[in-house]
Design a protein around this nucleic acid. Structure first.
Length: 218
DNA sequence: GACCAGGCACATC
DNA sequence: GATGTGCATGGT
């Protein structure tokens, strides 16, 4: 079967099983960006606590994060882990946003997708997955987000080799699927849903909707 | 108590 | 260019 057909088959199966996921779980584009940075290698539940702290302090805005000092910010986001590192990463993004776009997300998101992606990757602390999450879920651009679940799931299915790189995986998806941000949004969210429930490093294949015809793992 | 979570930068070979 | 390590909390 062609890669494209496997991908569509997986998507359809997941959508039928789980339904729409209503991602990203954040109310504003800025909240999505903050969440994308805070959730790096971290459980989303911990990120929610950190974001709640920022909201309670009235600091969940470009101006808010710009004005707060590093140590206080680190304290507020402590539940999300790596709090010193991540406080710096939030500050780096804010600095970029003001220097390059005068603090305006609207201006930032008026850029061409490829140009903005390149700029985001220049910001220290924003790597490929974070940049793509920002593009897709905060900016609405048709960019497919690759994460650890995506790689693990499609390796187990047998569609990806063990040593693929981020961009090889991304190309596999983006060369096969039409560039539809709504579909990319849903597909990635469904992948995470499946990953959380069934496709951890220690697999729990019992009841997995892909088990059998699509995935013969275990 | 070990394992894991919606990564990334940096050092070292 | 590949491989290893630090960053850190909280849930299972």
């Amino acid at each position: 079967m062609k890669k494209k057909d496997v991908l569509l088959k997986v998507y359809n199966r997941l959508y039928k099983t789980f339904g729409p996921q209503h991602w990203w779980p954040g109310e504003t584009p800025f909240e999505v960006i903050v969440g994308a940075i805070l959730t790096q290698n971290t459980n989303w539940g911990n990120v929610e606590k950190a974001i709640a702290n920022l909201k309670a302090e009235g600091l969940l805005s470009p101006e808010g994060l710009r004005g707060v000092n590093h140590n206080y910010l680190a304290m507020l986001i402590k539940p999300s882990g790596y709090f010193n590192i991540k406080a710096g990463r939030l500050k780096h993004f804010i600095e970029y946003l003001y220097k390059r776009h005068g603090g305006s997300l609207k201006k930032m998101f008026s850029l061409d997708m490829k140009i903005l992606r390149h700029e985001l990757l220049e910001v220290k602390g924003i790597g490929p997955e974070t940049a793509d999450s920002i593009l897709l879920y905060a900016g609405g651009y048709p960019m497919f987000v690759i994460d650890a679940y995506t790689v693990r799931i499609f390796q187990r299915i047998g569609l990806l080799s063990e040593d693929v790189t981020y961009h090889e995986v991304q190309d596999t998806f983006m060369d096969s699927l039409s560039h539809d941000s709504k579909m990319f949004n849903e597909f990635h969210a469904l992948i995470v849903r499946l990953g959380k429930e069934f496709c951890r490093p220690r697999p729990r294949c019992e009841g997995c909707p892909l088990k059998g015809e699509i995935c013969g793992y275990q």
